[in-house]
Every structure is written in C-alpha cells, then in structure tokens.
Design a protein around this nucleic acid. Structure first.
Lengths: 171, 171
DNA sequence: CGCCGGATTGATCAGTTTCAAGGCATGTGG
DNA sequence: CCACATGCCTTGAAACTGATCAATCCGGCG
C-alpha cells in the first residue's frame, strides 16, 4: 500500500463486524495462500494501493526461493498480529484494549509527536471488540488524566507513554 | 502430531490466559517463519508428537518449491482460523461461542457419534474468552434443551446439529 | 470408604452495552 | 455572512450479560 488506510473485516449475518487489522502505508494486505478471500477490505480514506496479480506472484514464488520465503514471512507476521489480537479480544479490559490500540497506532503513524487517526470511533470499537461509546469514554478518561491531548477528535498527542504502557497489561 | 491434544496459548502478566488453538492428531503446530516462539504449547493429555528440526525444514523449503508452498499453506490456514476466532472473541455472545466451539470440535474429533473432549472447562473458557462457569452454564442449557447429551462431563453427543448451527451465528 | 479435582449451580456484583440527549465541527444554500 | 443540516463525537442513565464468590455435587481412585 502506498498511501491512505484500509480496514480488513468480517461480518456476522446480523451486521456485527470485527475488524481484524488496519492496513497503513507500507503494509502488504490481501495476500492469500489458497483460493478464496478471507476478509473484506475497504478504504477508510483516499487510498492508493499497488496491485499485484496472484498469477505473477505465484510465478515469482515458484522460481525464486527468496520470494517464497518473503511471502511466507508476511503471512506469518499477520498471524503473529492476529494472535496478539486474540489475547486482547479474549482477555483484556476496555481500558487495556484502548491503551494497546494507542501504543500500536503510535508506533505506526505518529509523526512529529502527533498521531492522525484515519478511522472513526466505530471502526476503533469494531477493531477492539467494544462499542464506540466505550472507546470514547476511555479516551476521555485518558485525556482527563493528562495521558493524551486532543486537537480535534482524531488528532492525538501522547503525553505519557510510560503510563500508557503500564495500562496495556502486556505479556 | 500423532496422538493426544495440545493447547497453544498466551499469558498476560497477571495470569489471564488466551488459548489460541487446540492442536489435535494430524495437525502441524509450532511452525514459525521468524526466529522466536510466539505461543507457549502444553500437552493436555498424554501426547505423542513428531518433531522436525527447524534446520532441516529450512533446508527442504530452500531446495523444494512444493515444500515451501506447503509450509506457507499451513501458516495461512492458521491465520484463517485466527481470523475466524477474532470474530468470535470480539463479537459473539457466550452461547454463540459455545455453539461454535461444539461445531468445531464435532468436526475435528467426533467418532461414532461421540465427541471425547480432551480439555477441561477452564481450557474451553480460556479458548472462548469466557469463564469456566459460563461455559458450564451454556452446556447445561443445551443439555436441558436436548441439543446434546452427556456421558460424563467430557463425553458429548450432539443430538441436534441444525439447532446448534443456527445458534452459531455464522458469517 | 473417603478424598480430591473437576463440574455444576446459585446469588450477587461489575463492566460494558444500550438507549437517549446534546455538542461540535464542517459544509451548503439562502 | 448566517441559518441550518449532517456526521461524528461525547456524556449520562438504565439495563444486561457475563464475572465473581461460594456452596455442593459427582466420579474416579487410593
């Protein structure tokens, strides 16, 4: 992916949604070993992606061991993320989830001390297995504690990363 | 894996546990593309596994394209399972989780109409992001409804798979 | 027979969701 | 330039689901 932001998700028949990952510039997504699509993907904001045909990938993987290794490594990286995320969804509290989310996004998209979130509160909730209200309340609480500052709802500055790291409840 | 049953899990520092997968005979587990271990794995019952050295795998993958493809496919299969499980953990109700669990185990270990669960209620809870009490209550309720029968707490016979499939709340 | 770990069941509690109201920014048309 | 509509976000109160705490129960085994 070149620029923008994408959400990859699954839906239940009644509309409940679980976002499995947010894809940001530099990420590879939609990669598949088998035949069928696993997750739906949508751009959240204006997005530019680089398309690679399955055919040409298979060809390259078949002829070059390093390409094959690289493809495997990408899938393994996604699996690692999914395993971390299962721990979050199954066992963390709402505040721990939001803290973990902020640390992840800080790592991936903070520039010059500011983090510009491309997604709305509902998307964050569907990523963390929470409602948008619970996400909003957690962010408000962190703001009240001085852990973060806002410049508009989606422009966030982390003021106390240590505090946040403690709230994450890591392995 | 030859025989037995294994649980693969992650722990939080305070002991909360999330089981990412149960591995049963025929499954490959512990496969890794990078260097480090991602999940801890423990046998639940007496278990026999076939060990393969990382070194020899890497060698085989480097020289044989089909082996490389197969390794990638195994990791991709684990990713697919993790994505389904994130949907369960993030968005399904307790009863839907238990129903999904029963359908999965039915597929993987029912023989002659009986399913012999190798894991205790706590393990099931830690797999489904629930407490052991909630799992027990859901199973009791299904028993009362005639959806399943017990012969001892871990010997289960599914009597109404259609009903169970409806409770699963699939995609 | 009596012990022991695992399982069930009951009562209460707490965290998150749900429902509802209102606020704030952005954009559009008069 | 202002009035107003719209989408997103915040906040409050009530309701609910699943967690916690606690008491048995059951089955296998020494």
């Amino acid at each position: 992916m070149i620029s923008g932001a994408v959400r990859s998700y699954k839906l239940l028949s009644d509309g409940r949604r679980q976002i499995g990952a947010f894809d940001l510039p530099g990420d590879v997504f939609g990669l598949e070993s088998g035949a069928t699509h696993r997750l739906a993907a949508e751009a959240i904001i204006d997005t530019t992606v680089r398309l690679v045909k399955r055919r040409s990938l298979e060809h390259a993987a078949g002829s070059d061991v390093n390409v094959a290794r690289r493809l495997w490594a990408i899938t393994a990286g996604e699996l690692r993320h999914a395993e971390d995320h299962m721990l979050l969804l199954g066992r963390k509290t709402a505040m721990e989830r939001v803290a973990t989310f902020l640390m992840e996004m800080d790592r991936r998209l903070t520039v010059a001390g500011m983090m510009a979130l491309p997604m709305c509160r509902r998307d964050i909730g569907d990523y963390l297995g929470l409602t948008l209200e619970t996400v909003s309340r957690a962010l408000s609480q962190l703001h009240a504690q001085g852990v973060l500052g806002f410049s508009g709802a989606r422009q966030i500055q982390l003021r106390n990363r240590n505090r946040l790291r403690n709230m994450e409840s890591c392995e």
